[in-house]
Amino acid sequence: MFDVEEFWKFDLRVGKVLAAERVSGSKKLIKLDVDFGSERRTIVTGIADQVDPEILVGKKMIFVLNLKPKRMMGVESQGMLLLAEEDGGRIHLIEVPDEVPVGTKVW
């Protein structure tokens, strides 16, 4: 179990996907260009085996921004997309309503 203070350390923000493309040489990775209002970041997510990149463009979703950058297949990811995953591995996107501004803090 974690103390709630541990949870508050994560910087969860609403971001809007501006562009999405498969990472060359990978079956699962998608490179996202995400707008957070005051900045844009590259986020790499491993969902290409279940989601076509094209459907991600224009969606507002929740991202973790204060993780250490991680390089995957030559692309640096500057955060993490939050998803819902069933016990069997099927994933679901968690979309944020259009009226929520990009960059909004999630808690």
Score class of each variant (00 low, 15 high):
Met1Gly: 15
Met1Ser: 15
Asp3Ile: 07
Val4Asp: 14
Val4Leu: 14
Glu5Tyr: 13
Glu5Lys: 14
Glu6Gly: 01
Glu6Trp: 09
Phe7Gly: 07
Lys9Gln: 12
Asp11Phe: 11
Asp11Met: 03
Asp11Tyr: 05
Asp11Gln: 14
Leu12Asn: 14
Arg13Gly: 11
Arg13Ser: 11
Val14Pro: 07
Gly15Ser: 07
Gly15Ala: 03
Gly15His: 08
Gly15Leu: 04
Val17Thr: 12
Val17Leu: 01
Val17Cys: 02
Leu18Asn: 10
Ala19Trp: 00
Ala19Pro: 02
Ala20Asp: 01
Ala20Arg: 08
Glu21Ser: 13
Glu21Phe: 04
Glu21Ile: 09
Arg22Trp: 04
Gly25Lys: 05
Gly25Arg: 05
Ser26Gly: 04
Lys27Leu: 11
Lys28Asn: 14
Leu29Asp: 09
Asp33Asn: 04
Asp35Ile: 10
Phe36Ser: 11
Phe36Trp: 07
Gly37Leu: 00
Gly37Met: 00
Gly37Val: 09
Gly37Ser: 08
Ser38Ile: 10
Ser38Ala: 08
Ser38Pro: 00
Ser38Leu: 01
Glu39Cys: 05
Glu39Phe: 12
Arg40Trp: 01
Thr42Ile: 15
Ile43Met: 00
Val44Cys: 02
Val44Asn: 08
Gly46Arg: 04
Gly46Cys: 00
Ile47Asn: 05
Ala48Phe: 03
Asp49His: 12
Gln50Ile: 06
Asp52Leu: 00
Pro53Tyr: 06
Glu54Gln: 13
Glu54Ala: 15
Ile55His: 02
Ile55Lys: 13
Leu56Glu: 07
Leu56Thr: 12
Gly58Lys: 01
Lys60Leu: 00
Ile62Cys: 09
Phe63Leu: 10
Val64Ser: 12
Leu65His: 07
Leu65Val: 13
Lys68Pro: 06
Lys68Val: 08
Pro69Leu: 05
Pro69Asp: 06
Arg71Pro: 01
Arg71Thr: 15
Arg71Tyr: 05
Met72Leu: 15
Met73Val: 13
Met73Arg: 15
Gly74Thr: 11
Gly74Asn: 08
Val75Ser: 12
Glu76Tyr: 07
Ser77Asp: 03
Gln78Glu: 15
Leu81Trp: 03
Leu81Asp: 08
Leu83Trp: 10
Leu83Phe: 07
Ala84Ile: 02
Ala84His: 04
Ala84Gly: 13
Glu85Asn: 03
Glu86Pro: 00
Asp87Leu: 10
Asp87Gly: 08
Asp87Ile: 05
Gly88Ser: 12
Arg90Leu: 02
Arg90Gln: 11
Ile91Ser: 01
His92Ala: 14
His92Cys: 03
Ile94Val: 15
Ile94Cys: 11
Glu95Phe: 06
Glu95Tyr: 03
Val96His: 07
Asp98His: 10
Asp98Val: 07
Glu99Asp: 14
Val100Gly: 09
Pro101Ala: 09
Gly103Ile: 05
Lys105Leu: 05
Trp107His: 14
Trp107Ala: 12
Trp107Leu: 12
Trp107Ser: 15
